[in-house]
Simulated assay, not measured.
Amino acid sequence: MTVSQLFVRPAVAADRAAVERLWLLFRHDMSEFQGQLPNPDATYRSERLESAFQDAAWAPYLMTSGDRPVGFAFVRALDEPVRVLNSFFVVRAARRSGLGLRAVREVIARHPGPWAIAFQDANAAAVAFWRRVATEVAGDAWIEERRPVPDRPGTPPDVWISFTAA
């Protein structure tokens, strides 16, 4: 699929059902790298989804192409010095089309300042994508570090990329 049109906008209450469905796809993709099975009702943990729509320090975004939802992004820590891209997802049919890079640049541009983004080393596509994002947004003025995952001993550390966006 070629996605030529991309719209990134704040997600509102009316978008909740679509974002919830995208969330299931996102969590399913992440289960490969985090080893988490679905709940007995086939859902996944959704605390971040809840926070994105209820907490004033969070901003949920919906990405669409025409009338089709193609992804979402959750930004948190809007009331802190460093914004965190908490969750970012693009449906498989729209990946490797440039849509993800365009979308994340739009989200970051809406919240200038310091940023931190986490991902897993085992997710090779994410490693390449987030390093490319950091380079496109900040040139060579970004850092990468590994941090332990809180409350999950034995889990490989997350990789964090940090940079400042103008």
Rank of each mutant, 00 (worst) to 15 (best):
W115D: 06
P60T: 01
P10Y: 05
P156R: 07
R27L: 07
P69M: 06
A94Y: 00
F7V: 10
A128H: 05
N123H: 10
L62K: 00
F7T: 11
A141D: 15
P112V: 13
D140I: 06
A126S: 14
I117N: 04
I117Y: 02
M63A: 11
D121R: 10
N123T: 05
I161Y: 04
A126I: 05
W58N: 03
L85E: 02
V75K: 02
I161T: 09
A11R: 00
V84D: 14
R76G: 12
G100V: 06
E136M: 08
A118C: 10
S87T: 14
A57C: 12
Y44T: 07
A52R: 00
W115A: 07
L49Q: 02
R21A: 14
V149H: 14
A103Q: 02
W58V: 01
A42H: 15
Q120V: 01
P10N: 07
L78Y: 03
Q36W: 11
A77E: 06
Y61A: 00
F7G: 08
A128R: 09
P10R: 12
F72W: 06
A18G: 10
A18W: 05
V8I: 11
R76E: 06
V82D: 09
A11L: 01
L24M: 08
P153E: 14
V104P: 06
A166Y: 03
L85S: 02
S51Q: 13
Q34N: 14
V19P: 00
R96H: 10
L25Y: 03
A42K: 15
A73F: 03
V84L: 14
R27A: 13
E144M: 10
L37W: 09
P69A: 09
D41H: 09
A122P: 00
D15M: 03
A126P: 03
A94F: 01
A109F: 11
D121G: 05
A122S: 07
F26G: 02
Q5C: 11
F72E: 04
S87I: 07
R48C: 05
P114C: 08
A134T: 11
D121W: 04
